[in-house]
């Protein structure tokens, strides 16, 4: 008979042989636990997103049942009589965001071209740094600046000038208040500009240098090079950047809430006060007194959630496509 060696001894002393068989070896237990914990946390990310959708649907159920699809087109928002319609906020959100895009996109593309193509090398890093700092300033600080600097400036300088020059248009009618749709759109433009500029810059930088060299070698000027070699390849990515910016504009809350005037009305004039989906939630959610009121506000949030979800998926498909295509092209 052989004497039992250490390994046999340990096996004999292990309380539950089947347990070890299940986990594999001893070292593997730690691995399995760790793998499981990591997978659980990863699942937590998905669960948080899914939970958000489920919770918001649940919170807005009574409003959905009560108002149905008419919620979207109803223009009255009267908490006292418990009449809730989302139309003024949908209008306010869309108009302020489009206004912001109209102002921000040309400037942002210019900034991106400057940073990616024109700026001397020593300027690129600090300039990009400054553009990114813009994105880091909290939105409530922009709001504060909007209340005390932007809105008075609009009221005293910009709006009288616009009214004098273009007052015959319905967009520039009514008293110059400062606070209103124009202020909301402008502050949004300032806030989404860095997002659009830095993502556009990144997709332009990803265009292979050989394309630029080819254009330059054919005698193209610097701007023609950008036109024929860079922009066509960066186009999808820039569109993606714009959609990302739009997503931010739609959901941006504090700065807009502070300067847009907060009135649930639809007006043709950009000078008139308005409200957005996010601003009405910020203003009224904590004070909503009845369950239906809370549900109606939650439904506004649900709309915002759904729209930004779709926009983000779309934008990421566009930006992602550029990112994936670029290395393949560069390999040639």
């Amino acid at each position: 008979m052989q004497r039992p060696n250490a390994l046999d001894l340990r096996r004999a002393l292990t309380p539950s042989a089947s347990f070890w068989a299940w986990t594999g070896t001893e070292a593997n237990l730690g691995d399995r636990l760790f793998h499981g914990a990591a997978a659980l946390c990863a699942f937590g990310v998905v669960a948080a997103l899914a939970g958000m959708g489920v919770e918001m649907i649940r919170a807005s159920l009574s409003s959905i049942e009560r108002f149905g699809l008419g919620f979207v087109t109803e223009v009255t928002w009267d908490p006292v009589r418990e009449l809730f319609g989302a139309a003024p906020f949908i209008f306010g959100t869309i108009v302020s965001s489009l206004l912001a895009l109209a102002i921000a996109v040309p400037v942002a593309v210019g900034v991106a071209i400057f940073l990616a193509e024109l700026a001397p090398a020593w300027l690129r890093t600090p300039a990009s740094f400054v553009v990114e700092l813009l994105a880091a300033i909290p939105s409530v600080v922009y709001g504060l600046w909007g209340v005390f600097v932007l809105a008075p400036w609009l009221r005293d300088t910009v709006q009288p000038a616009l009214a004098a020059a273009l007052g015959f248009l319905p967009f520039f009618g009514g008293p110059a208040r400062g606070f209103g749709m124009l202020a909301g759109g402008l502050i949004l433009a300032i806030m989404i500009l860095p997002t659009i500029a830095s993502v556009s810059r990144d997709v332009m930088v990803a265009v292979p240098t050989s394309y630029r060299e080819a254009a330059l070698a054919l005698g193209a000027t610097r701007f023609e090079t950008v036109q024929v070699a860079v922009l066509p390849h960066a186009k999808a990515g820039i569109v993606g950047a714009v959609i990302l910016g739009l997503g931010r504009a739609l959901g941006e809350t504090m700065a807009v809430t502070m300067v847009i005037g907060n009135r649930a009305e639809i007006s043709a004039s950009l000078f008139a006060p308005a409200a957005t989906l996010a601003s009405v939630i910020a203003n009224e959610y904590a004070e909503a007194t009845s369950d239906l009121y809370l549900a109606a506000l939650s439904e506004l949030g649900l709309m915002l959630f759904a729209v930004t979800l779709i926009l983000n998926i779309g934008a990421r498909l566009l930006v992602g496509k550029v990112g994936r295509a670029a290395p393949g092209v560069r390999g040639g």
């Binding site: 990863a42 990310v45 958000m52 649940r58 919170a59 959901g251 939630i281 959610y285």
Partner: peptide, 26 residues
């Protein structure tokens, strides 16, 4: 699964913070 997690994380970073507020509120 990993692709789904990655996608969820990317999409989540674009969700308005006020929507997160409603989620936590409920």
């Amino acid at each position: 699964f990993a692709t789904a997690v990655r996608y969820a994380a990317d999409v989540m970073s674009g969700i308005p913070s006020i929507a997160v507020g409603i989620f936590v509120y409920t």
